[in-house]
Design a protein around this nucleic acid. Sequence first.
DNA 1: CGGCAGAAGTTGTAGCATGCAACTGAAGAG
DNA 2: CTCTTCAGTTGCATGCTACAACTTCTGCCG
Lengths: 140, 140
Amino acid sequence: MPNREATLATIQRELTAFARRARSKAARVHPKLSLVTYSMLDHMVETGGCRATDLACHFMLDKSTVSRQTATLERLGLMVRETDPDDHRGQILRPSEEGLRLLRDAHEQRRATYEQRLAGWADDDLERLAGYLQRYNSEG
Amino acid sequence: MPNREATLATIQRELTAFARRARSKAARVHPKLSLVTYSMLDHMVETGGCRATDLACHFMLDKSTVSRQTATLERLGLMVRETDPDDHRGQILRPSEEGLRLLRDAHEQRRATYEQRLAGWADDDLERLAGYLQRYNSEG
DNA sequence: CGGCAGAAGTTGTAGCATGCAACTGAAGAG
DNA sequence: CTCTTCAGTTGCATGCTACAACTTCTGCCG
């Protein structure tokens, strides 16, 4: 049985390896979208439409960066904006129909990738892993 | 008991969240080093001195990118290079004394971060998580 | 009411990482 | 010897990011 030090080192190493792979492989979940713009579109759906400031806060990015990324999304026809009726300074950002389609495709693609990768796993192992990851992310 | 679909979705979501956090938080593991340059120095140690081509292959980067990063490391006094005696085209890259010191600091810093984050975990939970992560990374 | 602080976004500027392509120098095959 | 291939560097372009200055609008306080 390995000691705690070694186990911690393994977890650290494996999570780092995962992060590196995620950045390089899943960096382009769609030809037109980077991981960040994809996540932004996703966040607009999850929140039911949000403002640029929300995105900046949630992803810890400068508002100028968000402004440029949303401009790109709009130029690609993947996002629409409407002035917030309650506060004319802000805008409500939502995916367009095409943006929603693209998001669904990307979701399905990623789901299939994970399903294939975890195909050989037993159900209870999957559930334990899911629980561990939730616990890890919620702490700290 | 959740179904397999839901469990897979959870794993996917949590790993994505982890990757996003890793990008923003662990982006700078040391004031002078980015995650990439840090990993490069680390790889030089693990391999006992390697060539730029090895780094490019291992990290899936263009050789020009590696060339510039190693130039930066050398300019910072963290790395030294010597012409490969067996092949005068290549160079053997190694951390300098200061590079090794800095690497040890960074290692310790990261180890402490993980230890703190996982402080409340039972040993067998840690070992199971480590095993799951190894299995996940080794497959696919 | 009128002015002023603060918030939401945009744009100018700069820095950094990265990739592709063209180039230099060296090793190895014929 | 010559030609090809490999290791590495450099020029150029691109994309993401931050900081700062500016615009427009809101909300508050005198």
